[in-house]
Each structure stands twice: as structure tokens, then as C-alpha cells.
Design a protein around this nucleic acid. Structure first.
Lengths: 342, 342
DNA sequence: ATGAAAGCGCTAACAG
DNA sequence: CTGTTAGCGCTTTCAT
């Protein structure tokens, strides 16, 4: 394998018959260079296949144009989407991103942060839940590196955070159901330990009360994220509380399960068609982490978290902090999007 | 904002009362330094909160420990999963990854590649489909940077490629159905223009013929990736060819749609339960890009692409190429995984 | 076992 | 407009 001799601006300068500083100026387009020499230099660059060594460039003191990203779990659709939006926005600004995964439990955060810093990143974004955000925040300040957090759930530490508005999402969708005439709306799914769920249930509850509708804690059911489970709990729910007319599902898997459960129940009650039973008896609505193809064709309304937009906001926010060093608004909450069915 | 003065090994050396080279040696653990001074240096490092500047370190000539990744679309579950596996494996080896998105159409590939190189990456991985792979391969060789490709579909250019075995996946699942006693197996979904689909249909066809079973082109149906569409095509298929006993679905959305179509058909034919109709009349099987939660609870068998494993293989491959400079095996095909239902 | 000194490739004053 | 000259922070012979 031919170890291609690295060509530097020295080589280019030599080939173009100018000095290194001239080449440097051409590269960064700063000093006023005559079109003639500019041409010559660019030609030499082309000819020699020169690629500028950005490490050396930034070493001198400038910024690297690189943003570090620590993401909990990339295989989670929400964070994958967020990352996609983030890199897209960042690249549009000529920046690059350094990717790191912390594992679901957000361990070794500090170590990862240091690693990123030692690579010379201009700023760091942490996406996912973190235990000791304040500690990281302090370390970042000490190191003089802007740090922004992003999370699906809420967050307690005093940090610069971008997150979705789970409560508003719940309000939106609950209100939608109420406007459709529903008065008896149940909740299905999620683990009671989930912070995200807590926020959503809160929004659901608040909206019911706001409209003077009944809120029964019996109608708020926990359920593992499994279709089978959801279907069972759903049928049980309908049997026990036949007056319920709408069910809010915690996520898409629950929604699919509820749908199956509903059909089974419809079948048993002797309706002539699944669809009509569905329409006439019980309406489903759901939360979705990302725009999900499976839900698209189902006759149910859903709200989705603005994962991609959050990525874009993150990009804006971190760039702003890098440029201005300002640390103003500390909790940027993103609105969800409601997708209604005809 | 307190612009924390960057502390360098000079500061550390001063604080520890040694020379910079000693500090450097301690950092890299190379030269034999006395435990005593080692202690002192480490203490100083701790005290000052020193972080080594890797840019400067690698500038001297060494490797950066950074791998560049160009991925078409991170919001595609398959590539998100692959990326997750890749970064995980790479980080386990103390490497880092530079992430870039090329957009679905793989444009600006060369530019992105150059950018990565200018950042000093030790190697580059391109995940997704690329038009002119050979061109990139040549450029990489010229620049002396190992380049490995990864793709969901097959690939024609002569490059170092890791890809899933679509054909074997189709064979596996078709064989599974045959072993279960099915003789009349139809195909549902995918666009005829898709290369991936072509490979899969090929495997399906080959397996049918291998077992002496009929292969009717009428039983291979195209379909948009929509549940509604799939459900319709499915019912149409069953009506027209009532002897069919099993259907192979191109992906999970198609599978869900087929399932709905099946239930509707079951209903109309007056079976007493969806499940029994399903079991007795038509069996479904499907391809899935990644392990999908929705499919987990459904009574259907599926094959999934080894996205995560591909990421791990990519990590191995690129590291191997970086270390040894060797460019041996050029087409590493990864086996799919069959997930059967009881 | 440790220190002195010479760069890595590039940028940024400061002179011409 | 363009060339000279110091470094950026770190590694690495070569001495000591």
C-alpha cells in the first residue's frame, strides 16, 4: 500500500511559487489576494490533491467547527431522529459532529465529556437522560465549553435544556377527543415510574378537569410495552367500564395492541364490522415518539414529539452559545404535533 | 463568561516540577518513569484539571483514533441501528466516530470524504447506497485512508463492502414456510425497482424451485409501503387465488397491512375467530429491517437484517485495515436472523 | 530516569 | 498585495 506522502501547504507554496502564508490566505479567503496568484495556488492545490489539515489549523487557536454529541441510545427512534435533524442542521452551517454513545444508563458521562473536549470540540450536546447534569454543567463551564442538554422527558438540574412539551401533547390530544364529543376517556399504557408518562397523564388529567369531565384513577391503566399485554388490558377495561368512549394510548405499540383488543371485543359483542364497532363505540388516540408509518394508515389520531425539530433547535442553540457565549434561556420547550384522522 | 485559560502540559510540568517531556511520557505511559514522579505528575494533572489536546498530539504524526462515518439517512432504522452497533464497537476499542449525513441520494460524497480526511480520520466508513463507489475507492487509496462500504442492498463497484445476505434471508424464511407444509406461497410488497427486493424475490423463487414447488409470477405482487394498500392487495390476492396458504411480506408495514387484510377476509368468510382463520387458512411471514416491537407479538415468523452486527463487523474491518493496511476480502456478507413463532 | 530541543501543518501578526 | 517569522500543544530523538 503506497503510503501517500502527505502534502502540506509548503508543497503547494513551492509548486505555486508563493509563500505559505499566501496559500493559507487563499485557503481561508481572508487577506486580499490577487486573482492571478489565487488562481495559481488553487491550481497547485488541485494538481497535488492537497487537503488542508484542520487539526493543525485549529491548533493555532481558532475553533474546530466540531460539535460533540453524547447520545444515550441511537437505536431508539426518537434519538436517532433527533440526531439526524441535528447533524443535518449543523452540517448546513459547515460544522461537523463527533458522535458518542453513553449507553442507556448514561454512565461515564463525565469521561465522555472529557474525551470530547480533548478532541477540541467547540461545544457539547447531551441527548438522553442524565443523573448528575449539574456536575457536568459545572465541569463544562470550568472548561469553557458550551453544553446543551436535550431530553425526551423533563429534567430537574439547572441546565440549558431543550425538551418536548409532554404536557401540551397530552392536552392537545385530550382536547381533540373532547371536541369530538367524548366525555369518558381512559388512559392506557406506560409504567408508573416513567417521568414522561407522569407529565402526559398530568396533561390528560388537567384537560379533563378543565372541561369539567370526570377523572377516574381507575381509568388510568399501566401496561408493559407489548401488544399482547395492551390488547388484554384493553378488553378488560372495556368489559369493566363499558361506558368509556375513547382511550388514550401511551405509545404506538400500546396503540396497536389496543386496536387488536378493540377488535376482539367488537367481535364478541356481535357487531357486524370491526370498523363500524370501532367508529361507533370506542375511539383510539395515541402518543408516538416519531412519525410512525404503522400509525399512518390507522383510523386514530396521534401526537408526535418534535424529534427532528429538536435536533434543529439544538443546533441553533449550541451555535448561538458558541458565538455569543451567552447562557440565557435555560429551558426551551418544543411543541408537539397533532396528526388527526378524517 | 470566564474564558478558562487552557492549561497545557507546560503548566503541568511546572506544577510538578518536571519537564514537558516527562509529562508527555507519563501521559502515554511509554518511557520508564519512576513511580515517584509519575505520582507527582498525575497529581498535578488532577489538580489543574488538565485535559490533553489530542489534536496537537496527533499532529506530530500519530493516528487520531477517529473514524469517519458517512451515513445516508440516520432516521432510517436500519442505518440507525448499524450506526449504534458501529460506534459501540469502536468506542470499546477506544476510538471515536465522526458522523456525517449524506442525504438519501448520497450526494456530495466526495466532498464529505475530503472533509473527513481533513479532520484527520484514520479511516472512513460509508453506509448507504452510493453511485460512484469506485471513484471514492480510488480517492481513498490516493489519500492513503482505508475506506469500507456498508449497504442494505447489493453493490456493484469493486469496493470493500459489508452487506446483509438478502438472498439467504429469503431462502431461510421460504424454507421455513415449506417445512411447515406450505406449498403455495405468495409474495407481497416492495417496488419492482428495488434492488433489495430483487435479491429477496430471487431467494424466494430459488427456494421454491429447489423444493419442486410452483412459482407463479402472478403471485408476486408489488405494493406501496402502506398498510391500507397492503390490506387491499392482500384481500384481492386471496380472492383471486384462494388456494394460497402462505404470504411472504416485504417489510413490517406490509405485514401489518396484510394482517388486517387477512382479518377482513376471515371475517367475510364467516370464520368464528380471526385467530383460527389465520392459523388455518393463511400463514404470514415477513422481512424486517430491524428487530421490530410491533412484530414481536404477532403470530408470524420473520427474518431480520443483522444491522447491529454489521456495525460491529464494520468496526472490526476498518480497524483491521488501519492496523495492517491489508485490503483482502472485499465482500463480507452477513447472515440474517430468523425469528420463529411457536 | 529525565531534560533539551526540534519540529508536526498551519495561522497570524508584522513587515515589506 | 505578499513574504518572514513566531508559535499553537504535544511527541520524540538524543543527550545527560
Amino acid at each position: 500500500m503506497a503510503i501517500a506522502k502527505k502534502i502540506t501547504i509548503n508543497d503547494v507554496a513551492l509548486a505555486a511559487g508563493v509563500s505559505v502564508s499566501t496559500v493559507s490566505l487563499v485557503l481561508s479567503g481572508k487577506g486580499r489576494i490577487s486573482t492571478a496568484t489565487g488562481e495559481r495556488v488553487n491550481q497547485a492545490i488541485e494538481q497535488l490533491g492537497f487537503v488542508r489539515n484542520r487539526q493543525a489549523a485549529s491548533l493555532r487557536g481558532g475553533q474546530t467547527g466540531v460539535i460533540g454529541l453524547i447520545v444515550g441510545d441511537l437505536s431508539a427512534p426518537f434519538y436517532a431522529e433527533l440526531t439526524a435533524g441535528l447533524t443535518e442542521a449543523l452540517e448546513a452551517q459547515g460544522k461537523m459532529v463527533f458522535l458518542t454513545q453513553s449507553g442507556p444508563d448514561g454512565e461515564n458521562m463525565l469521561h465522555r465529556f472529557e474525551t470530547l473536549v480533548s478532541q477540541g470540540v467547540d461545544g457539547v450536546i447531551i441527548a438522553g437522560s442524565v443523573d448528575r447534569g449539574a456536575e457536568l454543567r459545572d465541569r463544562a463551564e470550568e472548561a469553557g465549553v458550551p453544553l446543551v442538554f436535550a431530553s425526551r422527558a423533563s429534567y430537574l438540574d439547572e441546565v440549558d435544556l431543550i425538551r418536548p412539551d409532554n404536557m401540551q401533547a397530552a392536552q392537545l390530544i385530550t382536547e381533540h377527543l373532547i371536541r369530538r364529543g367524548h366525555q369518558r376517556i381512559a388512559w392506557l399504557g406506560g409504567q408508573s415510574s416513567s417521568l414522561t408518562r407522569a407529565e402526559r397523564v398530568g396533561g390528560y388529567c388537567a384537560t379533563l378537569l378543565k372541561y369539567g369531565l370526570p377523572f377516574h384513577s381507575d381509568w388510568v391503566l399501566e401496561c408493559e410495552s407489548s401488544q399482547k399485554q395492551a390488547a388484554e388490558v384493553m378488553t378488560g377495561l372495556l368489559r369493566q367500564y363499558p361506558t368509556i368512549t375513547a382511550v388514550l394510548c401511551y405509545n404506538s405499540v400500546i396503540a396497536m395492541g389496543a386496536w387488536f383488543g378493540l377488535m376482539r371485543a367488537g367481535k364478541q359483542s356481535g357487531e357486524d364490522s370491526v370498523e363500524s364497532y370501532f367508529e361507533q363505540r370506542v375511539t383510539l388516540a395515541a402518543f408516538a415518539e416519531v412519525p410512525e408509518a404503522e400509525l399512518d394508515d390507522l383510523p386514530l389520531t396521534w401526537v408526535t414529539l418534535p424529534a427532528r425539530e429538536m435536533g434543529q433547535s439544538l443546533a441553533e442553540r449550541i451555535l448561538q452559545r458558541i458565538d455569543t457565549g451567552q447562557v440565557s434561556l435555560r429551558n426551551h420547550i418544543m411543541p408537539p404535533r397533532l396528526v388527526t384522522r378524517k
